[in-house]
Amino acid sequence: MDEKTRRKWDRASRSFDLMASRGAEQRWQPAKRELFGHMSGNILFLALGTGLDIAAFPARQRITAIDISPKMLEVAQPRIDAYDGEIKAEVMDVHELGYADDSFDQVFTSCTFCSVPRPVQGLEALRRVLKPGGELFMFEHTGSRYYPFKLMMDLMTQLSRRFGPEMNRPTVANVAAAGFELRQVNHLFLDVVKTIRAVNPA
């Protein structure tokens, strides 16, 4: 377990809902509902956080959800209990997934790979537990290719990585580098906020 990352997100759990539950979550809710609407089968949800995404889950799914921060999952518990379906939440580091190979039909992430310390290795771990032909669905913010936004996000990352996410990650390239086959990228705001769909090659 990456203790430094766990401590960072344990600390963030105190103010996470204040920062994210209103503006960002309401703005992104329609796109998340559309993405999570693809849920079916045996699902792994990566980085449940305080459970804000649960409001966008379709009902009656069986979801295994992990997060590196036990404090985040404590905040998430009422939302897990209120979900009309089954969510099994576990404290786990994506770099050390405790599941057998080919365990899941689908993997979902939501604003996760801005924070995973070694993103390509994390994605490779997801590919290991995803069945061949299984799908990866991601809602992520990434770095921008365009100036001045690239410069701004590089500068902001120097500050934001101390208490939360990095803002300049090349997540689409990381998905391909981890061995997934990209199927679709839907840019929602500039080339920064996006959904990504990829497949674990058979």
Partner: peptide, 20 residues
């Protein structure tokens, strides 16, 4: 303060661009 009410990247990038 605006990000709490109106969103993250969609507020940060335009605001920083405007400030610049």
């Amino acid at each position: 303060p605006c990000s709490i009410l109106f969103g993250a990247m969609e507020v940060m990038l335009p605001a920083m661009f405007t400030g610049m």
